[in-house]
Write a protein that binds this DNA or RNA. Structure first.
Lengths: 106, 106
DNA sequence: CTCCTTGTACGATGGTTGTCGTACCGTAGC
DNA sequence: GCTACGGTACGACAACCATCGTACAAGGAG
């Protein structure tokens, strides 16, 4: 699996590795949909703990990992915090319109 | 669960019952993605057996059931055959652009 | 150095999923 | 009636998933 490795960037699939089924699966969970929607609504790069999700920390870690491994989000280590951002550009390039329609529906 | 029951139409969720997470989950399987793509590419209403899928009949039944219960497809009984069609109108109304972007990417 | 914060790792658990096989049912044609 | 065909129902099974709890690692603040 080709990965993009830049400074404190956590491993993630490259743009050409993105798979539709994997992305759809990552988005098919209400908790993850909520994370993605919150991420799309801000200009910042919130840490994992900033989402106030109704699950424990370990479950949280799990969901962020699923989203990152599917290529939906990108994570950067910054001190003890892990900063998250949506991979809008890569998603729009591979699956034009998909992210927008999901966000509009969510 | 409100269902639309018309003549030989099999039970399915009404337009307002469609849930984004359920639709995304239904579309997140390669076999079902293949079914939906084939369904979108024809004007006809093919029977379940007309798809030539590399799985057994029972698995086939399972996938069509998942798609129908998520509201992605509609099934009509016609003799011994079950005719399938995409619920384009309902999907476009509830999740504008979603189906198109998925089909374009698949 | 010591604590607090942020988050991961690992194991467990109950539930869901994709697949199959066999048995069955209803319609159509002979 | 009987047989073929298209499809469902049910049970089984291995794999996966969302969730949790506990234990642990690393950076920042005092």
């Amino acid at each position: 699996m080709n990965v993009v490795q830049a400074q404190d960037q956590i491993a993630q699939p490259g743009r050409s590795e993105l798979e539709l089924a994997a992305v759809l699966h990552a988005l098919s969970d209400p908790m993850r949909l909520r994370i993605v929607a919150a991420l799309a609504a801000t200009e910042e790069q919130p840490s994992c703990g900033a989402f106030d999700l109704p699950v424990t920390k370990s479950t949280c870690t799990h969901h962020f990992k699923v989203l990152r491994e599917a290529g939906v989000i990108s994570q950067r280590q910054h001190g003890t915090a892990r900063l998250n951002s949506l991979r809008r550009g890569d998603l729009d390039a591979r699956f034009p319109g998909l992210l927008d329609s999901v966000l509009r529906a969510a």
